[in-house]
Design a binder for these strands. Structure first.
Length: 839
RNA sequence: GCGGACGUGGCGGAACGGUAGACGCUGGGGACUUAAAAUCCUCUUCCCGUAAGGGAGUGCGGGUUCAAAUCCCGCCGUCCGCACCA
């Protein structure tokens, strides 16, 4: 066999072989060290895109590399198959969401197989399958029984276009994350999961996730948003009868004597009570609610308040009365929905106090000497020592904080506490295409769990999408059932679970999938935690936090002995492409334009085209490249190689024609080596060292997920082999090269391996080893510097002593010219590296 | 506003405090060919110089060091996340 490597036949041939031999089926009972490599499973939107290709190629390299290192590797794939696009398709094209989804899965599975990923297809799962979501319902009921699920009438974010409730996380700038429509507030009874029960655990454990990107840890930390402080109570004077006090939370109890007003949120019970008798208060509250919540609006929004007739009594001085305002900048959702204002030391309070001419008092200073210094143009929020604060004077911020909390607890008007930004997770969705919540509502028994032997609660297939809203709500025979508890007439919960629930445990089901329960604990624990999880940074908060919560909840229930699901996390960069616009501003796709010198023109019309910035591939900007035709013309290995080349994996990768061409060229170069002269009995010492260095470097790079560096190393090795004369070493180097590229370009590697008579599949071959003694050359190049500037390089035997190195350096003509007869004042020798002569 | 990441040739990017620009892409020159494709060789940070050689250079300004892209201080800029969180 010779000529060009032909991926169009080779790819399929090896893919069929792997499938036949079930090469990548993971054996849970294996004695080998176990490694679980997982990429975030895709939503079956229709076709694979370049982002998937990059993501799954990285995971595949790790999976294949670990296999070659003798690990039993679990590398599964499945489908995050519930969600709104399926319903949208159902409405637009009159197909059943399930039918649409399954067709997409078939297409995408086929595409993934053609990329040659080493996946265990035996464990494939789709979350829309009752054999998956039925177990999810069982787990939901486990959480329910453990008191981690509750139902609450609550104000929700209602998306008027998608006709569904959104989690806070799904509201971006006051708009629905998917529809982009402005979100409305509605009151609905919703199911919640008690993620806040785990807030501290989730926060604390972040510190130990040392194989996670710092960025993601910080994002989760901020999302959980832990604040420690004092919650305390103001008694009121002149208050509405139904309100008998205001609870406030502060992280700065030490500033309690700097307080000059109290402010409550427009939704606060006191504000609502005031509005009942005071039309002006009611009008003010309405005005606050109409205000936008976009970033720009918040930034420019003035601090506004409405002064109620109510007065608050300072807890440390019964004579001291503070005015009570309703204020637009106080949030009902955080803390107690009320604050005490300390204008001197909080910027928002400062702005508010200026607006309404309230006292701005200094109660914290750098030292007691500057206690009378007035506050300038800005609040001073930093710590210092307490001043003008009676018994606190002279204490540090820390001491004063502790002292106030102590007094409050002693006197009973407050207590030290912790507040979180994190809210409980609302999981109810008014959607058809999701996991039915296994609850039956009975007028006499209330919310009753569906008995376990009646699971799964299967979605009915005969539904209609001709009206907006949830079809389950209109499906009478599905909805109306008997109460499992009393046998009376009852109705099913027609809400389905947030799809983030589906993805909160799929990695456990991958590890173990018995038919009669969600997972087998012992089997799951042989694989978990996931050694390396790879996906987009867009899931840094929601998915990863929910999955962490779910795992911890199962641990608390005693169902799984794993606290953290993902030991290593890697967030890969996006695949980007230049954008193109026609004269009328419309976006053009890359295959509608061509280069004309330095400019771009529209192929069809010849009109000039402006090329815009390089951006994430997206349908709206039309700058996508479909992997399929690329795969057809270049083969899987070239595509995979390109995905790993050039850009560091955490950064964006710009798609380029040149890049894929280069990758394809590399595949052919390797093929030519394999088909070239591999005769020879002699040894090639230099090539041997190069080979061992490369084996070491590639392994190290892959261990660190620095695929671009591994690729560069392999290019160097290929060049070195090409230039070497035929020898036994050269033949050995070609054989090792094939092993080294096997995780990245597996089809080429198998084809080459077979040609070289490697025996068996290269997928099962051991990773090459290296001799550490061969990593260093006998001869080294010493840099010779004069005053830190490079002037010459000299070749020297490795391990040359200082005196000899110095002598060698000083013998250099160039050095002598620089010294111009002067004698060096000092000579620095770094063995085997450099000599620096200080003149 | 808070937090994070980053800033190196025409481009993507390499570089335990120790030869800046590995490797790839692009471009120039050449070989092979009737020709092209493919392939191979060679050059490609900038400036001066035919060359030998010299000078400058990792966003900007300082500092530490024999030696700084790398460490420290102060700026500037870009990207990302969160955001009236008490």
């Amino acid at each position: 066999m010779s000529g060009r490597f032909d991926p169009s036949t080779a790819d399929r041939r090896w893919q069929a072989r792997w499938e036949e031999e079930r090469s990548f089926a993971a054996d849970s009972a294996s004695n080998k060290p176990k490694t679980y490599v997982l990429e975030m499973f895709p939503y079956p939107s229709g076709r694979i895109h370049m982002g998937h290709v990059r993501n799954y190629t990285m995971g595949d390299v790790i999976a294949r590399y670990r296999r070659m290192q003798g690990h039993e590797v679990l590398h599964p794939m499945g489908w995050d198959a519930f969600g709104m696009p399926a319903e949208n398709a159902a409405m637009e094209r009159k197909v059943h969401p399930g039918e649409w989804t399954r067709a997409n899965i078939n297409t995408m599975r086929d595409q993934l197989k053609r990329l040659g990923f080493a996946l265990d297809w035996d464990r494939e799962l789709a979350t829309c399958d009752p054999s998956y979501y039925g177990h999810e319902q069982a787990l939901f009921l486990d959480l329910f029984d453990a008191g981690l699920v509750y139902r609450k009438e609550s104000e929700v974010n209602w998306d008027p276009v998608d006709m569904t409730v959104l989690a806070n996380e799904q509201v971006i700038d006051g708009k629905g994350w998917r529809s982009g429509a402005p979100v409305e507030r509605r009151k609905l009874a919703q199911w919640f999961l008690k993620i806040t029960d785990f807030a501290d655990d989730l926060l604390e454990a972040l510190k130990k996730l040392d194989q996670w990107p710092e960025k993601v840890r910080v994002m989760q930390e901020n999302w959980i948003g832990r604040s420690q402080g004092l919650q305390f109570r103001f008694e009121l004077a002149n208050s509405p009868p139904q309100i008998d006090g205001i609870e406030v939370f502060t992280t700065r109890p030490d500033t309690i004597f700097g307080s000059s007003f109290i402010a409550v949120a427009p939704d606060h019970p006191l504000a609502l009570a005031a509005a009942e008798t005071d039309p002006k208060a009611a009008a003010f509250i309405d005005e606050c609610r109409s205000g936008g919540t976009s970033a720009a609006e918040i930034e420019t929004a003035e601090k506004k308040g409405y002064r109620t007739p109510v007065e608050a009594v300072h807890p440390l001085d019964p004579e001291w009365r503070l005015p009570v305002y309703i204020a637009n900048f106080v949030l009902m959702e955080y803390g107690t929905g009320a604050i005490f204002g300390v204008p001197g030391h909080d910027q928002r309070d400062f702005e508010f106090a200026r607006q309404y001419h309230l006292p701005i008092k200094r109660v914290v200073a750098a030292s007691t000497e500057v206690a009378s210094e007035p506050i300038g143009d800005e609040a001073e929020s930093m710590a210092g020592v307490a001043v003008n604060s009676r018994f606190l004077d002279g204490m540090t911020t820390e001491q004063a904080t502790a002292e106030i909390i102590r007094r409050a607890e002693e006197a009973g008007w407050g207590h030290g506490t912790v507040q979180y930004r994190l809210r409980d997770w609302g999981v109810s969705r008014q959607r058809y295409w999701g996991t039915p919540i296994p609850i039956i509502h009975c007028p006499s028994c209330g919310a009753v769990p569906v008995p376990r032997d009646q699971l799964p609660v299967v979605l009915p297939d005969d539904i209609e999408f001709d009206k907006p809203g949830n079809p389950l709500d209109r499906h009478l025979t599905w909805k109306h059932v008997r109460c499992p508890s009393c046998g009376g007439l009852a109705t099913r919960e027609t809400d389905t679970l947030d799809t983030f629930v589906d993805s909160s445990w799929y990695f456990i089901r991958f590890a173990s999938q018995p038919a009669d329960k969600p997972f087998d604990r012992a089997e799951a624990e042989t694989w978990l935690p996931v050694a390396q999880y790879i996906g987009g940074v867009e899931h840094a908060i929601l998915h990863l936090l929910y999955a962490r919560f779910w795992t911890r909840a199962l641990q608390r229930l005693g169902e799984l002995g794993v606290a953290e699901p993902f030991k290593g996390l890697f967030t890969q960069g996006m695949v980007t492409h230049e954008t193109y616009r026609a004269g009328d501003g419309s976006w053009l796709s890359p295959d509608e334009v061509k280069r004309d010198g330095d400019d771009w023109v529209h192929i069809e019309s010849g009109h000039p085209v402006t090329s815009g910035r390089v951006e994430k591939m997206s349908k709206s900007k039309r700058n996508t490249i479909d992997p399929e035709p690329i795969l057809a013309s270049y083969g899987a290995d070239a595509v995979r190689w390109f995905m790993l080349s050039d850009s560091p994996p955490e950064r964006d990768l710009e798609w380029s024609e040149g890049g894929i061409e280069g990758a394809s060229r590399f595949v052919q170069r390797v093929w030519r080596l394999v088909n070239g002269n591999l005769e020879g009995a002699s040894e090639d010492e230099a090539l041997k060292r190069k080979l061992h260095r490369t084996v070491a470097a590639v392994g190290e790079a892959v261990d660190d997920l620095q695929f671009n560096k591994a690729v560069a190393q392999l290019y160097e090795l290929v060049t070195a082999i090409e230039k070497a004369q035929p020898s036994a070493t050269r033949a050995e180097a070609v054989r090792a090269l094939i092993l080294l590229i096997a995780p990245m370009a597996p089809h080429l590697a198998e084809e080459s391996w077979a040609l070289l008579g490697g025996g068996g599949l290269i997928a099962n071959a051991p990773w090459p080893s290296f001799d550490p003694a061969l990593l260093l050359d006998e001869q080294v190049t010493l840099a010779v510097q004069v005053n830190g500037k490079l002037r010459d390089t000299v070749t020297a035997p490795r391990g040359l002593d200082r005196a000899a190195a110095e002598a060698l350096a000083l013998a250099s003509d160039k050095v002598q010219r620089q010294l111009a007869g002067a004698s060096p004042r000092k000579v620095i020798v770094v063995p085997d590296r450099l000599v620096n002569i200080v003149a």
